[in-house]
């Protein structure tokens, strides 16, 4: 049996492209941080690690739901699949809410993009990632709707897998962002 790649070749082009762009951003962040470690640590102290951890757990859980959901689609289970995608979507909504809460807290402290290079990076990376979360949420909403009927065509299955892979990428990128912004000491 040939080794099987989930999704389609096209989605991997997109995912590797995205990861390359983010890798460049992460490297530039570390470079900027290297020049002003004390300032970046002072900025980091303003962030709530609790919210960061909660968001990481939310995305990991949603990834689990989505992986299970894709499995159910492959088994032709049109009852559990949409529920699992909806559960993943609920986690994504939780992530967005917590992110909004964190932004609101920082704004209340008078911190904005221009306060310090650390916050420039913080807002840029998290907002960019949030954009990916929103696009991924649209994909999950679409999956919730279309998997109510059994998907029979192989291309539909490949598309479902591709959307799932995109969501896992969103999760993976967040884990790196979380480590870089909230944890590095």
């Amino acid at each position: 049996m040939q080794p099987r790649i989930p999704g389609e070749p096209g989605i991997w082009l997109l995912i590797f492209g995205e990861m390359t762009v983010f890798a460049v951003l992460f490297a530039s962040f570390l470079h900027a941080r290297h020049g002003d470690v004390a300032g970046f640590l002072a900025g980091q102290a303003h962030l709530s690690k609790g919210i960061g951890i909660a968001n990481t757990l939310l995305l990991l859980t949603s990834s689990l739901f989505v992986a299970k959901g894709v499995d159910m689609v492959k088994q032709g289970d049109s009852i559990h699949a949409p529920r699992l995608f909806a559960a993943g979507l609920a986690c994504a909504a939780g992530f967005v809410l917590l992110k909004a809460l964190e932004y609101a807290q920082l704004f209340a402290e008078g911190i904005a993009v221009g306060s310090h290079p650390f916050f420039g990076w913080y807002f840029a990376l998290t907002a960019l990632h949030l954009g990916h979360v929103l696009i991924g949420s649209l994909l999950l909403s679409a999956l919730t709707l279309i998997t109510r009927k059994p998907l029979t065509r192989p291309l539909h299955l490949a598309l479902t897998e591709s959307a799932g892979c995109f969501w896992h990428m969103v999760d993976l990128l967040w884990i790196v962002i979380f480590a870089l912004i909230y944890l590095v000491e």
Binding site: G10, L13, L14, A127, G131, H132
Partner: peptide, 18 residues
């Protein structure tokens, strides 16, 4: 494949307004 290329372009267009 054009669908995926176009999708990547759409995703990346969010960087512009920054």
């Amino acid at each position: 494949w054009l669908g995926y290329l176009t999708a990547w372009q759409l995703v990346q267009s969010f960087g512009g307004p920054m």
